[in-house]
Design a protein around this nucleic acid. Structure first.
Lengths: 168, 168
DNA sequence: TTGAACTTTCAAAACTTTATGAAAACAAAG
DNA sequence: CTTTGTTTTCATAAAGTTTTGAAAGTTCAA
């Protein structure tokens, strides 16, 4: 397998992986393409490389920027905008963790809190069983939340401490 | 909020959460319903409770059984089949982890192995950059794989050790 | 101010996934 | 073997998601 083939394979694999997660195929493919390209690409480059429309490119690049996985860069003398992906895979993982926590874990924890307040006769066995189930799920969710927060934080600290070294 | 409302809310929330993951909405709703019901339900119960068709019920229950999240139970004197969900949320988490590892992580690791073999002039800078990227992703994937395996294994051990206590 | 280069939006079309329900298959009881 | 209650399958319908591309919007140099 040569370099071009390998790159294409990577883009395609990352794409179908993304699809299995909540991320859409094109968004994952654009991310893969940028991950594998050392230099910034323009919207036109991405369109040509992946054979997708301008609108599609624009939409998905914007979403990647929202997730913090891709950055706009300006190249002096060029009018177009260019894009690069965060290459440090640990950072990528923490950005994804942060985003998914926000979108998935936080909302369910909120609902679980409410469900614990379910009212009724305290001697009702069914009610008791329900509250127990919810309480267990709640404990699990809190534990998971703490773990993810710690993971995200560890990466942030790493970032700030190296920033500190840099400016000191 | 009374018990019935709380249950309905839980089923609905768990359902939309599942949809954000790879799991489909109905599958997650059936799971939630069984989680919250102390006694086994039949296919007809599920159909009535969630307003879905027989085919849909059958398909999604089967998938839940594949994942190990739900079990068929036979009730003496009844001709129908009944279903119960695993209620221990930690076990649920490990079953899901196991299934997702198998479907998502294992295949990508296989591809990454292959991509490291990409051929070409060893002095080519681009090739070198590509191999470096892949190598980093690979390291990350292995680390993740180990962590998940450890998690799955810890649960298995816990299971076997309590089984042992039980029969001893 | 104009117009060329570029980006963004959005309604409609293409595509993908999921659900339905009638029919087939199966299994227990008579 | 036949009837009856039940589960499974599968072609088709419905719902949901993603993509397209043309039009509107923006920016900037001249």
């Amino acid at each position: 397998m040569n370099l071009a083939e390998a790159k294409a394979q990577f883009v395609q694999t990352w794409g179908s992986l993304g699809a299995q997660w909540g991320i859409n195929r094109t968004m994952a493919q654009i991310h893969a393409l940028l991950l594998v390209m050392p230099d910034p690409l323009s919207a036109d480059d991405i369109m040509a490389e992946l054979n997708i429309s301008r609108g599609n490119t624009n939409m998905n690049v914007r979403e990647l920027i929202n997730w913090g996985l891709v950055e706009r860069v300006l190249i002096p003398g060029e009018r177009k905008e260019f894009f690069v992906a965060e290459k440090d895979i640990w950072k990528v993982a923490t950005y994804i963790a942060r985003e998914r926590k926000k979108r998935e874990l936080d909302p369910i924890m909120k609902v679980l809190q409410q469900l614990q307040q379910a009212e009724g006769d305290p001697r009702d066995k069914e009610l008791k069983a329900f509250k127990d189930s919810i309480s267990n799920i709640n404990k699990f969710a809190s534990q998971t939340d703490k773990t993810i927060s710690a993971f995200i934080k560890s990466e942030e600290n790493w970032f700030y401490s190296s920033l500190l070294k840099l400016i000191k």
